[in-house]
Amino acid sequence: MRLVIVGTGGMANSHAKKFGEIEGVDIVGGVDRNEERLTAFCDEHNIEKRFTSLEDALAWGEFDAVANVTPDAVHHPTTMPLLAAGKHVFCEKPLASNFADADEMATAADQAGLINMVNLSYRDVSALQKAHDLIAAGEIGEIRHFEASYLQSWLTQPAWGHWDKEEKWLWRLSESHGSLGVLGDVGIHILDFAGFAIGAPYQSVSCHLKTFDKAPGNQIGEYKLDANDSFTMMAETASGAVGVVHASRFASGHMNDLHLQIHGTKGGIKVTNTGDLGELFVCSGPNLEKAEWEQVELSPTPNNYRKFAEAVKSGVNGHPTFRHAANLQQVLDLAVESSKAGGRKDIPLSTQLQDA
Rank of each mutant, 00 (worst) to 15 (best):
A96C: 10
G10F: 04
H45G: 03
K214L: 12
W60R: 03
T301I: 14
P81W: 11
D213R: 09
E36R: 15
H15V: 05
H132P: 01
A235W: 12
V4T: 09
L58H: 07
A309R: 14
A106P: 03
V74D: 07
D276R: 11
F250N: 12
D32N: 13
V182L: 12
D43K: 05
W60K: 03
E44H: 03
N304C: 10
E175C: 14
W171M: 12
R123I: 00
V182Q: 06
T211E: 04
N68W: 04
F281D: 10
R306W: 15
R344V: 13
H254K: 15
H177W: 14
S284K: 09
V74G: 02
A57Q: 08
E36H: 14
N287L: 05
D103R: 15
P77M: 14
K345E: 13
F322T: 06
V312A: 01
N256F: 15
A291P: 02
N46C: 02
A326E: 12
G61Q: 04
A96T: 08
E104R: 12
I115A: 14
A16Y: 11
E294Q: 14
E175K: 15
W171S: 04
A309Q: 14
K307S: 12
E297R: 15
E337I: 08
R144H: 07
K270D: 06
L114D: 01
A106Q: 02
R50Y: 05
T301Q: 12
G240C: 03
Q329E: 05
V31R: 03
Q129E: 02
I135K: 02
G342H: 07
P320T: 03
G138T: 01
F19D: 15
D133A: 09
A12E: 10
E147M: 08
I140R: 04
D185Y: 12
S176V: 11
L353R: 01
W160G: 08
W293C: 03
G342S: 03
E44N: 07
Q157P: 04
K340F: 11
Q203W: 08
G264M: 08
Q152H: 13
L349Y: 00
F41S: 09
I220W: 11
K210T: 06
D103P: 00
A325P: 02
L128K: 05
S339E: 04
Q152Y: 10
K18E: 13
G113N: 04
N34K: 13
H189Q: 14
P201H: 07
N228D: 11
A159Y: 15
W160F: 13
G285A: 12
Q330N: 10
W171C: 00
A59P: 01
V242A: 11
T70H: 08
I47P: 06
D64N: 13
A65M: 14
H88K: 01
A16S: 10
